[in-house]
C-alpha cells in the first residue's frame, strides 16, 4: 500500500492488471466515453454542422441570387446595346432620308429656277424681237419721212400735191409687199417720176 492509500485503507494502484477489475474499469470508461460522445455530438458537433450547412445554403442562395442579378443585368445591357445600335441605324436612316429629301428639293428648286429662267429668257427674247420689229418699223417710217421730206423738197418745185401722195402710197405698198422689190420698184417709180 502507498502512503495515502494506506492511510485511507485502500490497496496500492497498478500500472497494468489483467483481472476482473480491468473489465469493470473498461465498462466504466466505456460508459464515460459513450456519455461524452453523445453529449459532444448533440451539444457541439451537430449544431455546429447544422449552422455550417445553413450558412453554406445561405451563401449558395446569395450566390445564385447574385448570379441571377448579374445575368439580368447582362441581358439588360445587351438589350440597351441593341437599342442603342437601333437608334444609331435609325439616326443614320433619318439623316439619309433627310439628305435625300433635301437633295430632291434642291434639284426641284434648281429645275424650277432653270425653267423660270428659260421662260423669262424666252419672253425677253420675244419682247426683244418685238422691240426690234418696232424699231425696224420706226426706222422705216423715219426713213420714209426723211425721204418724204427730201422728196417733198425735191418735188416741191416739180410735182403737185396729188402726185406726191400717189408716190408715197406706192412706195409704202411696195415696202409692205416685199423688201427685195423695194429698190427696184422705188427706182422704177423714181425713174418714172423723174
Amino acid at each position: 500500500m502507498g502512503a495515502a492509500g494506506a492511510a485511507a485503507g485502500l490497496p496500492d494502484g497498478v500500472i497494468l492488471s489483467l483481472d476482473k477489475s480491468l473489465l469493470y474499469n473498461i465498462a466504466i470508461q466505456l460508459f464515460n466515453v459513450a456519455v461524452l460522445t453523445v453529449a459532444l455530438i448533440f451539444l457541439l458537433y451537430k449544431p455546429v454542422r447544422k449552422f455550417l450547412a445553413e450558412r453554406r445554403q445561405t451563401i449558395r442562395a446569395e450566390l445564385e441570387e447574385a448570379r441571377a442579378i448579374r445575368d439580368e443585368a447582362l441581358e439588360q445591357k445587351e438589350q440597351y446595346e441593341k437599342l442603342i445600335a437601333g437608334i444609331e441605324s435609325e439616326r443614320e436612316e433619318i439623316l439619309r432620308q433627310t439628305h435625300k429629301r433635301a437633295m430632291e428639293k434642291s434639284d426641284q428648286m434648281l429645275f424650277d429656277a432653270r425653267r423660270e429662267a428659260e421662260v423669262i429668257y424666252s419672253r425677253a427674247q420675244a419682247e426683244l424681237e418685238l422691240e426690234r420689229e418696232n424699231l425696224n418699223d420706226e426706222m422705216k417710217r423715219q426713213i420714209i419721212e426723211i425721204s418724204h421730206m427730201m422728196a417733198g423738197r425735191f418735188v416741191q418745185v416739180s410735182m403737185d400735191r396729188a402726185a406726191q401722195d400717189r408716190f408715197i402710197e406706192h412706195a409704202l405698198s411696195e415696202w409692205s409687199g416685199g423688201g427685195n422689190d423695194d429698190g427696184e420698184g422705188g427706182e422704177g417709180e423714181g425713174g418714172d417720176g423723174r
Partner: peptide
C-alpha cells in the same frame, strides 16, 4: 518511483468485488 494508477477511494462494490475510484477516473471526469 511509483507510476501506478493510484486508488483514491471506493467507487462501488459488486458482490465481493470492490471497484476503486482511481486517478484515471478522476482525470477522465
Amino acid at each position: 518511483m511509483d507510476f501506478s494508477n493510484k486508488n483514491l477511494g471506493v467507487l462501488f462494490r459488486i458482490g465481493d468485488e470492490t471497484i476503486y475510484f482511481n486517478q484515471t477516473h478522476l482525470s477522465t471526469w
